[in-house]
Amino acid sequence: MLWTLFRRDVSLIARSPAVWMPVMFFVLVAALFPFAVGPDARLLARIAPGILWVSALLAALLPVETLLAPDMEDGTLDQLAARGIAMEWVVTARIAAHWLGFAVPLLLAIPVAGVLVGLDAAAGWRLALALAIGTPALAALAVVAAALTAGLRGGGALAGLIVLPLALPVLIFGVGAEQAGALQLLGAASLVSLAVAPFAAGAALKPE
């Protein structure tokens, strides 16, 4: 059942015209920063992981209004609930599909984005590893925010306000990935987000 839901979510995301938006956004931000901070390569290389992490976080939030709100409006969630399928499962499948849809293209775009901000190969790999560990948390938080704001007008902006503070631990440990223990803490933050998100989002989607 979870597999059926996941497969469907992935095929819906793949068909959406917005599927390339997060990765385009990620690369564009990386391309803009050298213009904004000037051509100092050392400065740029030092702040590069931070830049890429923040743009990854914002990229995760780009599709937040299409993650769950359409399903609430068009009756999909009703059909699922009427089949006795717990919203927690629906949300779990959605988190996995969202991660696949936004984070995997982003990871593949790291070489391009890394060159634009002057990241060397070693730092690029470190960033890729940290993003691979941290992005599931970003996907989970985005889906929670989508669940909380589904059915609200202008939910996207509110979703940003909900997610950004919660994403702080992921951001801190992700950017500091070269420090000892940071990756472990990043993994822990990611696992906690993944464990809590289905219940939080599921509770938000329960009919009142």
Partner: peptide
Amino acid sequence: HEVALKPRMTLGAELSHWARL
């Protein structure tokens, strides 16, 4: 009132999805 059909999917794919569930 809402029939829960996704605009970009074909009708056959949609109904197969629910039939699978």
